[in-house]
């Protein structure tokens, strides 16, 4: 009797090869969709934890690298401490605009205001107004001592002057005739400038060979700085200049290059900008005294958080002074390229 043989090859619907390809295609599509979904989800949830507080930081201007560093420090602190921070800055130094921002911050009922101050009645009034509404104010870089501000964070002006004196002494080896060019910035009130001068003078007391011949007060920044520099050069016997702000420092350096007096006059500057760095590298400026802007920004936020959480903080935080000259430029840059204090 014949029998039927079982045809038993090839199981299932699909040949194994086709099955693998099909599965691969489906898998690819699924993964694509899941990846898309998660990418989208992540995009939607960038803000992880809601910030604890909303702080308001006012900067003196939006162009100066010093204030950019302050901002960077504050941003880093805000990120670390999980607070939201809003920045406001007039494009150029403008005390009235700063005051307006304090008013706005007060009206906006922020959790804290961090601002450079001017020790004048209008400014003090605004600070006190904010404080009265329960908004703590911390001053940075420039203090308004007479206001009800919670704390001041910045360099000690006396120390700043003293460091500048030391730098000059080292540069001229104890023998120089010095011209001092005061700051034209309105915020730098007489008190602060006097403190710097006091520091400067006290250092030079130990160096009898160094004499401060003249103190200039420019009226219109760079433009008048050029005139001052000309006057200084005309004077003939002056071989060192100490500038009390960054803009004047650049102005003086520029004039010295223009009049071809590089190397004949030792310039001690204040603050640090790309131009100043450039002039230090070229040897036009011997060195500069700098506050620690990053630290100022960082401690501004940190102290404000302390005020919010503990209702108190140390009323003055000295963020120190640094000297930048050709020798330590590289290490300064390294230190300030994003690291924390």
């Amino acid at each position: 009797m014949e029998t039927v043989k079982h045809a038993n090859q090839g199981h299932g619907v699909l040949r194994p090869k086709v099955r693998v390809w099909l599965l691969a295609a489906l898998l690819l599509l699924t993964i694509l969709n899941i990846a898309l979904f998660y990418a989208r989800q992540r995009e939607n949830h960038v803000a992880e934890k809601p910030p604890q507080y909303h702080f308001y930081m006012i900067l003196q201007n939006s162009v100066d690298p010093f204030w950019q560093d302050v901002r960077r420090g504050a941003q880093d602190a805000a990120k670390t401490l999980n607070v939201a921070i809003e920045f406001r800055a007039p494009q150029f130094n403008n005390s009235e605009e700063e005051q307006k921002y304090i008013d706005i911050a007060t009206l906006s009922r922020v959790d804290g205001i961090i601002t450079p101050a001017v020790n004048n009645p209008d400014f003090i009034k605004l600070i006190n107004q904010a404080t009265a509404q329960g908004i703590p104010v911390i001053t940075i870089e420039n203090d308004a001592k007479d206001s009800q501000r919670q704390a001041f964070i910045g360099s000690n002006s006396f120390m700043l002057g003293a460091e500048a004196g030391k730098l000059l002494n080292d540069a001229v080896q104890g023998k120089a005739r010095v011209a001092v060019i005061m700051s034209s910035e309105l915020e730098k009130d007489a008190l602060t400038q006097n403190m710097i001068m006091n520091g400067f003078s006290s250092t030079l007391k130990d160096a009898p060979g160094i004499q401060v011949i003249k103190v200039y007060t420019p009226k219109m920044e760079i433009l008048s700085t050029e005139e001052i520099t000309q006057a200084v050069l005309r004077q003939g016997d002056i071989n060192a200049v100490f500038c009390l702000d960054a803009i004047n420092t650049v102005g003086v350096a520029q004039s010295i290059v223009d009049f071809n007096k590089v190397g004949k006059i030792t310039v001690i500057g204040y603050g640090i900008t790309p131009e100043i760095k450039n002039y230090i590298e070229k040897g036009v400026i011997h060195g500069t005294v700098v506050g620690n802007p990053y630290t100022i920004g960082y401690y501004g936020v940190k102290s404000m958080l302390e005020v919010k959480q503990n209702r108190t903080t140390s009323s003055v935080t000295d963020t120190g002074v640094q000297i930048v000259d050709k020798a330590n430029m590289t290490s300064y840059e390294m230190q300030n390229s994003g690291g924390k204090p």
Binding site: A84, E86, S108
Partner: peptide
């Protein structure tokens, strides 16, 4: 509550509007 600068400005505007 956001850390975004624009959102913070929105918050300010609302508070100022209330004032």
């Amino acid at each position: 509550s956001s850390k975004d600068a624009n959102d913070l400005m929105f918050v300010d505007i609302y508070h100022m509007t209330e004032n």
